[in-house]
């Protein structure tokens, strides 16, 4: 793992995602977003999108292999 400030930032975001997953704040809230989706479900759907974005950052800034290792040149 190549440790850089950017990769550290990515791992902090991953930890934040795990914390945000335990959303105490919408637990018993029955508001419907756009009149359709319960807010608890909407929040977790957004969390899925945030996870995808975080993993995009991870592949860019915290990729565990060098370019030659990624291509399998070492084999």
């Amino acid at each position: 793992m190549h440790r850089t400030p950017a990769s550290l930032g990515v791992w902090l975001i991953v930890m934040l995602l795990v914390i945000l997953h335990q959303d105490d704040w919408f637990w018993e809230n029955s508001t419907l977003v756009f009149g359709i989706v319960p807010i608890g479900l909407f929040y977790h759907a957004c969390l899925s999108l945030a996870a995808a974005f975080t993993w995009f950052l991870a592949t860019r800034y915290a990729w565990p292999l060098s370019e030659s290792e990624s291509r399998g040149d070492a084999a």
Binding site: L17, H21, D23, S48, A51
Partner: peptide, 11 residues
């Protein structure tokens, strides 16, 4: 069930 099984799996 979404938070329990789906969004957690996404992470």
């Amino acid at each position: 069930v979404y938070g329990k099984m789906a969004s957690s799996s996404g992470i």
